[in-house]
Structures are given as structure tokens and as C-alpha cells.
Design a protein around this nucleic acid. Structure first.
Length: 236
DNA sequence: CGGTACGTCTCAGGCCACAT
DNA sequence: ATGTGGCCTGAGACGTACCG
């Protein structure tokens, strides 16, 4: 953890949380690499850290940068330690439970209880939404049923999606949002595009609360404005 | 796909020695 | 004093490899 995508993610959550004056729930879909495959263990995730030497990036948020810089040392990469000490505590409620292969349902139910007081939940599955259910490697995806379940509990859900490696972003994102809509999910916000490499997208599943929605929309717009060039809003 | 990292190339500017 | 050519330097353009 602590790579460029985490930086972007926290930047966004912090902006949203501080403008709304709420804490946002973060479910990071922690997976034990051992439980997937041997090749998974060798992948050495999260080593894209050279951004920490780039003042253009780090100047965007000094505090965040310096905290993430501490994680360059591997021995400091202790999740519980990080989440209890970080200044992000004020903005984020961290759900640090790992997904165990046979206990996904339980893990998910626990997350609902854990976030009972948080209206907004940010989901960070490695691979985005799983469009073909019952695939072998669902651990790294968010499942349609989970989104539905959060939505029915009145939550606003924001989840991450990586770019496609062979389609350009607009048709790709349209496809995904259509898929969500046809499955009864309310996609009524623009999709946030983070122009890192690879691009990541934040897709929001909303509710029908009009006043709240307008507020959030205007925060999205101010976010884009604040980080001009790095962030785009895609309206489908 | 859409970005980063990194090497190579080009060209303008600064500097200076030297000639006019 | 003023002009000329040589040389170094650094910013920016460009190409390639690489990555999730």
C-alpha cells in the first residue's frame, strides 16, 4: 500500500469528507495473496512510488505525502498501525478485515454493521466490478449483490475501477454504467477519471435524496477544479 | 488504453576568446 | 566597441520500453 493510487484515493476521500463534514467508510477489499495463488504473491503490488519524489504531486497534500513516504520502508507497512495513526482518521473509517475465501458473506455482513453510521462508503476492490459472476477469482472484485445490498441499506457507494487495456475509456465506462443501471443500481453522478497510469475511475451509486445529491455533485465539481488536469468528470 | 520513466536529440542562450 | 565563431549547458521535444 501507499502507491500512487492510494494517494489519489485519499486525496479524493479527504476532499469529499471534509466538505461534507462526515467520515467516509473505506472498505479496501483486503485479500491475502496466499489465498489466491502462488503467482499472486510474487506480484509485489504497490511499488509505484516515484511520485513521492515529484514535488508537483507531493505539494498537493504535504501531510498525506509525508505519511505515505513513511511506507516506502517495508517494515512500516503495517496496515493497522497506519490506520490508527494517520491524520486521515478524521475523514475515514477503515474496515481492515481480510476476505477469507470461504467466508465472503460473513466478511460482507460485518462490513455493513461496521459502517452502520456511515452514509458514504468507498469500496476499493483491486479489479472493479465483476460482470460475470461466479468466476474463479471473485476475491478481487466487488460483487453486484454487494452493491445492491449497500444500496438497499441507504448507502451511497463509490467504488474503484481500473481502465481497460484494450478499449478506450468512454465506451468502456459506458458499458459498465449501463450494466449497473440494468441491474437496478442508481448511477446518477458523473464518473471520476483519475488520469494516472493506468487510469482509475470512481463510480458512484447514489440514492434519491435530492438535496444531498446536489451537494455531492458540487463537491465533485470543485474537486475537478481543484486538481485541474489530473481529474476529469465523465457524464454518460 | 493511457500513462510513467528514461534515453537521445535539438536548439537557443550564455559565455568567452579572438578578430575586425 | 563591436562582431564572429566555438563550446558548454539545460529545457523541451521526441522515441521507446514498460506497466497494470
Amino acid at each position: 500500500m501507499g502507491d500512487i493510487h492510494d494517494f489519489y484515493k485519499f486525496l479524493f476521500i479527504k476532499h469529499l469528507a471534509s466538505n461534507l463534514k462526515v467520515r467516509i467508510g473505506l472498505n479496501w477489499f483486503l485479500v491475502d495473496p496466499k489465498s489466491i495463488s502462488k503467482s499472486e504473491m510474487k506480484k509485489n503490488d504497490g511499488e509505484k512510488r516515484s511520485y513521492l519524489n515529484n514535488p508537483k504531486v507531493t505539494n498537493l497534500d504535504e501531510k498525506l505525502s509525508s505519511e505515505l513516504s513513511d511506507l516506502v520502508k517495508k517494515k512500516n507497512r503495517n496496515l493497522k498501525n497506519f490506520t490508527t495513526k494517520t491524520h486521515l482518521q478524521k475523514f475515514v473509517k477503515f474496515y481492515n478485515e481480510k476476505i477469507m475465501r470461504n467466508e465472503r458473506k460473513l466478511w460482507f455482513e460485518n462490513s455493513i454493521n461496521f459502517f452502520c453510521r456511515n452514509e458514504i462508503i468507498f469500496l476499493d476492490p483491486d479489479n472493479g466490478i465483476l460482470k460475470r459472476p461466479n468466476g474463479r477469482n471473485s476475491q478481487k472484485y466487488v460483487l453486484l449483490d454487494e452493491l445492491k445490498s449497500y444500496q438497499s441499506k441507504g448507502k451511497i457507494i463509490i467504488f474503484t475501477q481500473f481502465q481497460s487495456y484494450n478499449k478506450s475509456f468512454f465506451p468502456y465506462i459506458s458499458e459498465i454504467t449501463n450494466f449497473l443501471k440494468t441491474n437496478g443500481l442508481k448511477v446518477k453522478y458523473p464518473v471520476l477519471r483519475n488520469r494516472t497510469s493506468p487510469n482509475t475511475f470512481y463510480i458512484t451509486i447514489g440514492q434519491d435524496r435530492v438535496i444531498n445529491n446536489q451537494r455531492i455533485l458540487s463537491i465533485y465539481k470543485s474537486y475537478k477544479k481543484k486538481f485541474e488536469g489530473m481529474i476529469e468528470l465523465i457524464t454518460i
